[in-house]
Nucleic acid binder design. Structure first.
Length: 417
RNA sequence: GGAGGGGUGCCCGAGUGGUUAAAGGGGACGGGCUGUAAACCCGUUGGCUAUGCCUACGUUGGUUCGAAUCCAACCCCCUCCA
């Protein structure tokens, strides 16, 4: 690996963010000389970003910490088209209302990771619908479409994949790469943005933007990608039992978020500590050199540090404490997810199936029933074997709650209220 | 517009008149082992007021005692031709 002189590239490369870079030396020089401005685009397909987007978010954070200006580009316009990269099938078309609701949720996430404002290194958030919506088809084609050959567009992975697998690629989606290329050009014009970052699946789109800007504006822009993040066993990051690992607290509690990181595979601990926490590298080296069960300490550190960034110190500490009480002491921890229940109902006794469903541990009675026959359901740590079992006031333990568990890891406190 | 191929459960994919809630695989979840890890082994994987009932193989009708399987129309996708 080249020895970089800029803080930015030094940090990014030491921590393992960099996969490919269009012209690392020139970018390094530019970043050492002064403030640069860089962007990453985010889709607006869901009301929150999830752990899969975290790499990008962290890079923008590192960028800002190294004294540069991050731009968060919301794909309000491009989401209407749908990025075919890495996808077999076209995406559902979202309505404008969906998109703007999603954008509002996503905005939340970024306020945790970046400082927004008007200063030279303050982050800004822009929406590409601002310029894409107004494009005039004919003039856009004449001014920009002329710089793309279909020959080359067909050679991109995102397109090739669909063609080879004989899956349909609509003309709408085919245009995506041109629009993203145009975004880069537009951001360069508006903000002097010279760097686009993204996942390795974005390489083609990024390079297109660089080339377009060079041809149209003679601008010299850079691209940098990160390796697509998977766990050591090859699973995609960010998915779990309950669904995606959302970054918004209202979609996934800080406790569950902490748990997600706590359950990291051994082989990923060091890598994740570098990417998703801000601990100094020497400390990380110490943590990852732990052996066997001791590595669990490193996982706890990872979980707490990662949770701090997304949810703040207090929430992280509380999640750690809740986990400690639950898993290490086997006691009831207040911080577990809670379900309030009508005391009158409890007095009469509530069926275990109903309770499991209401607590959100199972989606249907049938699932709860199956879980019971799989030995998965426990009340106050006592296995339930009878689907007709009822829970009542007598099950309330010390601090007036009932602990309902699905498997060894998922617990909910039932409280009369 | 024409010819041919196709639409099956979370995904892939078998099934071409009955014992089919639908083989097999993947994924996911649970149990065991462990360290809240990986690997491995075992199990589960449509719903319900549950020894029965309901819903389900693109949609709507039809044939039949009986259909994912046969017929008709329609919708959608793919390939080739115009």
């Amino acid at each position: 690996m080249t020895a970089y002189t800029s803080d930015l590239l030094k940090t990014l490369s030491e921590r393992g963010y960099i996969h490919q870079c269009t012209d690392a030396e020139a970018l390094d020089a530019a970043a050492s000389k002064g403030t640069i401005c860089a962007y990453i685009g985010f889709d607006c397909t869901a009301p929150s970003l999830h752990a899969g987007s975290l790499l990008g978010i962290m890079m923008l954070r590192k960028l800002q910490q190294s004294g540069h200006k991050p731009i968060v580009l919301m794909g309000g316009g491009t989401t209407k088209v749908g990025d075919p990269s890495g996808k077999d099938e076209s995406r559902k078309v979202l309505t404008d209302d969906d998109i703007s609701a999603n954008m509002a949720g996503i905005r939340e996430v970024f306020t945790k990771f970046l400082e927004f404002g008007d200063g030279p290194t303050d982050a800004v958030m822009v929406n590409n619908a601002d310029w894409l919506d107004e494009l005039n088809y004919i003039s856009f084609l004449r001014d920009y479409g002329r710089h793309f050959t279909v020959n080359r567009m067909l050679s991109f992975d995102s397109v090739k994949l669909r063609l080879e697998r004989e899956h349909p690629l609509t003309f709408l989606e085919f245009n995506y790469m041109i629009l993203q290329a145009y975004d880069f050009l537009e951001l360069h014009r508006r903000y002097g943005c010279t760097l686009q970052m993204g996942g390795s699946d974005q390489w083609g789109n990024i390079v297109n933007g660089i080339e377009l800007s060079r041809r149209v504006d003679s601008a010299e822009l850079y691209g940098l990608t990160t390796a697509l993040l998977t766990t050591s066993s090859g699973a995609k990051m960010g998915k779990t039992a309950a669904g995606a690992v959302w970054l918004n607290a209202d979609m996934l509690s800080p406790y569950d978020y902490w748990q997600y990181w706590r359950n990291t595979e051994d082989a990923d601990v060091g890598r994740f500590l570098r990417l998703f926490t801000e601990l100094p590298l020497d400390e990380i080296e110490k943590l990852e050199s732990l052996d066997g069960a001791e590595l669990n300490e490193a996982k706890k550190t990872l979980a707490t540090q990662a949770t701090r960034l997304a949810h703040g110190d207090d929430a992280a500490a509380q999640a750690a404490e809740t986990a400690r009480q639950t898993f290490e002491q086997g006691t009831l921890a207040d911080g577990l997810p809670t379900l309030d229940i009508d005391p009158a109902k409890l007095k009469n006794g509530v069926g275990i199936l109903t309770l499991t469903v209401e607590a959100g541990l199972a989606a249907t009675n049938g699932e709860a029933r199956r879980a019971i026959s799989n030995n998965a359901i426990a009340v106050n740590d006592i296995r339930i074997t009878d689907p007709k079992h009822t829970v009542g006031e007598s099950d309330l333990v010390q601090d007036g709650a009932i602990k309902l568990s699905f498997g060894k890891k998922r617990h909910v406190l039932i409280r009369p209220a």
